[in-house]
Design a protein around this nucleic acid. Structure first.
Lengths: 226, 226
DNA sequence: TTACCGGTTAACAATTTGATAATATGCTAA
DNA sequence: TTAGCATATTATCAAATTGTTAACCGGTAA
């Protein structure tokens, strides 16, 4: 990963805040804290964290309210949210999950479980395919830097080659039809010959020096790591 | 989704099994039960459930072992798994999540929380869109990946073969008339001889090495798992 | 200008696929 | 039992698809 994942924690108890912060930071995450619901909303807007851990019982806006407010905004539709609650009141827990949280933790919090759940959530989302950075095995595709790294070596691809590879790698194992590829990489207006895709595929295979692109005859191409 | 979601529950305590079964059935799910790890694996293979709820402590193979075994097989890569544990032993919980479970529940189980988590999990997966997958017994047909897996082995079919099988498997037990097959797979314009279908059927039978396509003389073909 | 790069195309080779013909097998009804 | 019909099997060949190489062209940096 190029940039470290940001996690926002909102809780009114400083002790809890500190414990969580410490544990997540030792895992390599960047942690932002907030002492109440309003601070949480403000911090979320500013830092755009990947994950928000919300205590349910907080002065002012409680965690569920914060979650509801955030979920209304498109920017936070995909943001992971975990609820934290002192009471093991199950109706609250149910309400939390229905509100659109991704997980739930009850106090007292076990650092190990916390860290495990956080990692697990990120893993689940990562497999969904987050834009910007594609990582498959030893292969790293960085859309922003337009760069490809394989086993630590940088590989230079031309634009079309890069976009074609990035497309295929965005959904490993999915077969992309030639039409899909043309639309995604070349656009709908441009009309290019039949052999154009093949030639680009060949160049990629050549440069990567690795058989990660499979031909499905009569259908299309797919990306697969061994 | 066309058919109801299947959920497999494995627990050695009949009471727990019954409680969970009752609650999930009232939610409209189809429930299959297993009394131990081996039964669970067998049942999973046969019924191909969308979700498996595994008790960790079971005679014979425990839940974590079952999960590990299942996760090795491509057919269960995407299957949701929830662990169930009587002990709130956190190291076990951590191990569970690391093993590749999607969630975790501790006994005593609150029916409301259970149902809520199950719904929540399905919602999360649904948004991901796992369309185009046909699962029948040990056979998995993945339209997106253009791949067929039978008993964990990948089988490569050519385009027409794949489409023909996918058609037949899309409605198991339904007899497809030769005309229907021609229209669906070959299209209305193309005209091909009578023996063409036979030959393709034969190739599929050969590659699958399994008698899942039945001939209905004078009518057509149908797909059926034993 | 000149050299180079990326994108495209043309031409041909290699491969895979699909359709058909020819033959065999098996079922059914008279 | 046997003729007649439907399907199974096999081999073969043509067509479709993709791989490969080299050449072309326009833009751009030295």
């Amino acid at each position: 990963m190029s940039n470290v994942k940001k996690i926002l924690i909102a809780d009114d108890e400083p002790d809890i805040l500190e414990i969580i912060q410490f544990n997540l930071q030792s895992e390599g995450y960047e942690v932002i804290t907030a002492k109440n619901g309003d601070e949480a909303i403000e911090a979320a807007r500013i830092h755009q964290p990947s994950l928000i851990i919300l205590d349910i019982m907080m002065p002012g806006k409680n965690g569920i309210e914060v979650c509801n407010i955030l979920r209304l905004q498109p920017a936070f539709k995909e943001t992971l949210i975990i609820f934290l609650s002192a009471l093991s009141d199950e109706s609250t827990e149910v309400r939390g999950l229905e509100t659109g949280a991704d997980d739930y933790l009850t106090k007292p919090i076990s650092p190990k479980i916390l860290v495990s759940k956080v990692n697990s959530l990120f893993r689940r989302v990562a497999s969904k395919g987050s834009m910007g950075m594609i990582k498959i095995g030893d292969l790293v595709i960085d859309r922003e830097k337009y760069m490809i790294t394989y086993q630590g070596n940088d590989i230079i691809l031309a634009r079309k080659e890069f976009e074609l590879l990035a497309l295929l790698a965005s959904k490993p194992s999915k077969v992309f039809l030639r039409n899909e590829i043309l639309n995604q990489v070349w656009g709908t207006e441009v009309i290019v010959g039949d052999r154009t895709i093949d030639v680009h595929i060949r160049k990629i295979r050549q440069k990567l020096n690795l058989d990660c692109i499979t031909t499905v005859k009569g259908v299309g191409y797919k990306f697969e790591m061994q």
